[in-house]
Design a protein around this nucleic acid. Structure first.
Length: 506
RNA sequence: GGCGCCGUACCCAAGUGGUAAGGGAGCAGUCUGCAAAACUGCGAUGCAGCGGUUCGAACCCGCUCGGCGCCUCCA
């Protein structure tokens, strides 16, 4: 049973879908006018994990995540760059898929675009005009918030309070300062579509109402997004959707907290703004490894709270994962064990699975779920030191992958290429910040250790290990240490096993 | 002015009424030719501060201090 915090009620509630065993969820994606930053990554990952956990729990999930591809910021960006809006949106949609793909975030069931739903948007707007909830002024259509008594329910605000805070120039033609545009007449050079009110384009919030209703129906289960969308975006979506259909819109509203830098919200003016691609580019770690580290980091705090991005946070994620992959490497080796050992292992695995499910069922408590993984790691290590058969090891490794899959962690593909030694040498954030100061000149060559070793290099290392093993057998420890020193300088870590053989890792 | 969040050990971070999870770092030990890894032990009588409610409070209430967010585009 999943309990989830619902912004609408301000409470943690048992999750019950409208249709048993089926979940329909909509998450606000991005407005595609720039590259995604680490905050977008958090939001995308949180809802990816929610979706995966629902699927893990046996639900069939229809997951819709939109692209807003018509908007003031896009138009501005297109003008700045002297290209079409289509060129801007196409570029950043592709970038979105690339960046989120590196983070292991699955594509949604449907990823609709606003521009593909203009007819739906016009229809929705017409309904609101007909019902008297919207009015037309000079080719613009505004939603009239004072005609919708429930306005402010989601964000717990009263219209009077909002009015007091309005300090931006108010359009004189609006009946109320908080009235917002459903449809805007377009100026020359802007994207435009024919409508009952003349040529124009959609307003800021209507596209999500149109797309969610089109793909999920008038009432659906979960609507998600970042905290900052609660007001005005989601508040307005509710007003438009409920106002138009007369029905309940989304039943559970789920919002993730911000990624911060030094306890402050990221912003370009503070220079503390990190895009996903910068982080991958400036990292010394291979892409798949960096993706794993970022996922571990992003899930190490409960989704509802703030999360500070820093090099230290990344290092802690890396250290934690080192422990898991160290264990996985040992699980991948063959070994002998007892029936009792295997029995105990199965018990520990069952406990971990249970702990994982309890944690996730409690409002997606990913930090506690990770703690359950850590506990399991420790328990398996103990059993391993007592001896586990090859079969038992495989069972354990498979279970780690099965449980980790909800988080996109512990993929077997990474076992053989996990870089243990590269722990702390470089600063990702400094690399990014320094780049803007010094044009990236000083950070070349840093990724040499990130590339997988070639077969020739591996053969060479194996040969040296063999020489060292021979030397150790002869008790020629000075020779053995000399070889070890040489390997250490290449970033190779040596581990001598009790049976006299040696494993190595980087 | 209005709405809201946060303050738990050196660091990160769970816990929202029943006697402080987990990780990282550190220290000590076992193992090891040395190491690495693993394992074992140590580590908050205490949860920003002060009052209150309660048999019992990190959790509830009040006040104070400190940090932050939203009310305008924003994940």
């Amino acid at each position: 049973m999943l309990k989830i915090y619902n912004t609408l009620t301000g409470k943690k509630e048992p999750f019950e879908p409208i249709t048993p065993k089926m979940v329909r969820m909509y998450v606000c994606g991005v407005t595609v006018y720039d590259y995604c930053h680490i905050g977008h990554a958090r939001s995308a990952l949180v809802f990816d994990v929610l979706r995966r956990y629902l699927e893990y729990s046996g639900y069939a999930v229809t997951f819709v995540k939109n692209f807003t591809d018509v908007d003031d910021k896009i138009i501005k960006r297109a003008h700045e760059q002297g290209v079409s809006c289509d060129a801007v949106t196409a570029k950043y949609i592709q970038a979105y898929h690339e960046d989120m793909g590196k983070l292991g975030i699955r594509a949604a069931t449907e990823e609709p675009k606003a521009t593909e739903h203009i007819a739906d948007i016009i229809q929705l707007t017409e309904q609101l005009v007909t019902k008297g909830l919207a009015y037309v002024v000079d080719g613009d259509v505004y939603f009239e918030v004072s005609k919708y008594p429930e306005y402010g329910r989601l964000s717990k605000r009263r219209l009077e309070d909002l009015q007091a805070g309005a300090r931006v120039d108010v359009d004189e033609r609006k009946h109320h300062a908080m009235d917002f545009a459903l449809w805007k007449s377009s100026k020359p050079g802007e994207p435009t579509w024919e409508s009952p009110w003349g040529p124009g384009r959609p307003g800021w919030h209507i596209e999500c109402s149109a797309m969610s209703i089109r793909h999920l129906g008038e009432t659906f289960d979960i609507h998600g997004g970042g905290m900052d969308l609660i007001f005005p975006h989601h508040e307005n979506e509710i007003a438009q959707s409920c106002g138009s259909t007369g029905k309940e819109f989304a039943r559970y509203w789920v919002h993730n907290g911000f990624v911060q830098i030094n306890k402050e919200k990221m912003s370009k003016s503070l220079g503390n703004f990190f895009t996903i691609r910068e982080i991958f580019e400036k990292s010394e770690w291979p892409e798949a490894v960096m993706g794993e580290i970022l996922r571990y980091f992003l899930l190490s705090t409960h989704y509802h709270g703030p999360l500070d991005f820093s090099d230290q946070a990344l290092k802690e994620g890396k250290s934690a994962l080192n422990g898991f992959y160290d264990l996985f490497n040992r699980l991948n080796e063959s070994g002998q064990g007892t029936a009792l050992g295997e029995q105990q292992l199965r018990a520990r695995l069952a406990e971990a699975k249970q702990a994982f499910e309890v944690a996730m069922g409690d409002d997606l408590n990913t930090p506690v779920a990770l703690a359950a993984f850590q506990t399991l790691r420790s328990e398996v290590n103990k059993l391993l030191s007592q001896g586990l058969s090859s079969e038992a090891r495989k069972i354990a490794r498979d279970e780690f992958q099965a449980l980790g899959d909800t988080f996109g962690l512990f993929h077997k593909d990474l076992d053989s290429q996990w870089p243990f030694a590269m722990n702390s040498s470089a600063s990702v954030t400094q690399n990014i910040i320094n780049q803007s100061w010094s044009d990236q000149a000083s950070y070349q060559g840093q990724s040499q250790t990130a590339k997988p070793f070639s077969a020739a290099v591996i053969a060479s290392i194996d040969k040296q290990i063999e020489e060292r093993t021979e030397a150790r057998k002869r008790k020629d420890f000075s020779k053995a240490d000399e070889i070890k020193k040489r390997l250490t300088e290449q970033g190779i870590i040596i581990e001598d096993k009790p049976d006299g053989t040696t494993r190595w890792k980087r």
